[in-house]
Amino acid sequence: MASESSDEGGNGYEPKILVFACNWCSYAGADLAGVSRLQMPANCRIIRVMCSGRVRPEFVVTALSKGLDGVLVLGCHPGECHYSEGNYFTRRRGLLLKNLLQFVGIEPERFQVRWVSASEGAKFADTVEQVTEQIRALGPNRPQGGMHSTEPGDR
């Protein structure tokens, strides 16, 4: 992986992860994690969307190509979508996109989809923790053109 041969990896590296969370389940789950004061790494930045089905794959591709270290899409569990069907499209799209990204050599950990319900504050925290650690282990994302995460402390 990139970090092994990289001088930018190492101890100070903090990945930056974009999270899409649906308003009704996952964003609420994230709120619950907060209300429950569940501590987690501070690498994720949430964009709220009404439904995970709103997340067009172009967002994921663009985010990774712009050098963000990972993208996590969170939606309601299948069968529990506020809009009844939106996350089924997320699921199909996610399956295909994950494979496609992997096919062009992008580590599968960098794009993940998970289902987090409004009552799963703990699952939200665990997911953030897991995904952050997985991506931290990969080291900085190096999209085409050699962009990379900034050095720690440089922000």
Partner: peptide
């Protein structure tokens, strides 16, 4: 309220130091 331009600008803002 959730158009491509708005969401893309958020992604761009997050990736600012990178690009």
């Amino acid at each position: 309220g959730f158009n491509d331009r708005q969401l893309l600008s958020m992604i761009g803002a997050l990736a600012e130091e990178m690009t």
